[in-house]
């Protein structure tokens, strides 16, 4: 893969990041109310101070100037100040980002580990008993909303069986192996909720992707050379069928983030999703804008990653 391809992809990603920032800023600019609403209601802040602050932050300037200033501040990492916890927004987000990323990463891994074998086996014998059962379960899987599966798991494993803790905590008891075990135990349910949902929708994509490849001529050639069916499937079909699946995993990221917000809220995982919800309930506008922007950047980043991986796995794409 050439650096030229990489550069071109990055050049495509930048306008979409700019576009997203325009959308976010437009939403904020169109919104009624004052971003400094908290200062208005605060009786300790006199009116002239508020007006001076408005002038200082340039809130009365034309829209395009405000946009450029806002974007410049965001790029420099100056994301403002949380009204509620009195901490800079970027420190707050950086504290919580690793938790979100690790939960999402683990659940994506689980989704792939479920979806690839099931999808390939279902496609190997289309319309067989296994295929139909897998298809039905896939439908059930992505029709079960994450908030309901989360509650069901809590009901079964925490309330009834008392096996797993309900609340995810940052301060885990124990040392050594006990620490690791406790950390894994509290992550099981959030990861399972997200992973099963994601896996269920991936199964169908893997299946149809394998079905596309399996009817190609080179597969017939491999079979007619007398290579065993299992070897044909694994070495010839799956390798090629998984290329579009890589893109799909990355393109599903916006949906995954939505699911992550819900699961973090249910299990009280201290990630940026639950930060977003608590900021909304507390009218903490700078935090809300910061988290939304981080989510947007992550989505663009994963799209870029998908493009680059796609070019690496399938050199025909990179040549175009």
């Amino acid at each position: 893969m050439s650096t030229d391809f990489l550069l071109r992809r990055i050049m495509i990603a930048i306008p979409s990041l700019l576009g997203i920032s325009v959308v976010l800023f437009t939403v904020l600019a169109l919104a009624p109310g004052d971003p400094f609403g908290e200062l208005v209601t605060n009786p300790n802040v006199p009116a002239e101070v508020r007006l001076a602050l408005r002038a200082k932050f340039g809130l009365d300037d034309p829209v395009h100037l405000r946009y450029i200033r806002w974007l410049w501040a965001m790029l420099q990492g100056d994301w403002g100040f949380s009204f509620v916890s009195r901490v800079n927004v970027d420190t707050l987000i950086l504290q919580r980002l690793p938790t979100t990323i690790s939960v999402i990463g683990a659940s994506q891994l689980l989704a792939i580990l479920i979806a690839v074998p099931v999808g390939v086996l279902a496609a190997a014998k289309p319309y067989s008993m296994f295929d139909q059962i897998a298809n039905t379960f896939a439908f059930i899987g992505f029709s079960l909303p994450t908030f309901f599966t989360g509650l069901l798991l809590i009901l079964v494993f925490s309330v009834n069986l008392n096996w797993l803790p309900i609340v995810y905590s940052t301060e885990i008891a124990g040392h050594g192996m006990a620490y690791v075990w406790n950390a894994v135990r509290q992550a099981i349910m959030p990861v399972a909720v997200l992973g099963l949902f994601q896996g269920a929708s991936l199964v169908r994509y893997v299946r149809s992707s394998v079905l596309e490849v399996i009817k190609l001529d080179f597969v017939t050639t491999a079979r007619s050379k007398g290579i065993g069916e299992r070897k044909v499937l694994v070495l010839h079909v799956v390798r090629n069928a998984l290329i579009p699946v890589v893109t799909l995993v990355a393109l599903q990221m916006p949906i995954v983030f939505g699911g992550a917000i819900v699961t973090e809220q249910i299990f009280r995982v201290p990630g940026i999703g639950s930060l977003l919800i608590s900021a909304m309930l507390a009218n903490d506008t700078p935090v809300i804008m910061g988290v939304t922007f981080v989510f947007s950047c992550l989505v663009v980043f994963f799209n870029l990653l998908a493009d680059v991986l796609y070019g690496w796995l399938d050199p025909r794409i990179a040549l175009r």
């Binding site: 979409s16 997203i20 976010l24 916006p254 939505g258 947007s296």
Partner: peptide, 13 residues
């Protein structure tokens, strides 16, 4: 562009 917007955060916002 709209496809790469994070839907739920934006919806909430």
């Amino acid at each position: 562009l709209f496809l790469s917007l994070p839907q739920l955060p934006l919806l909430l916002l």
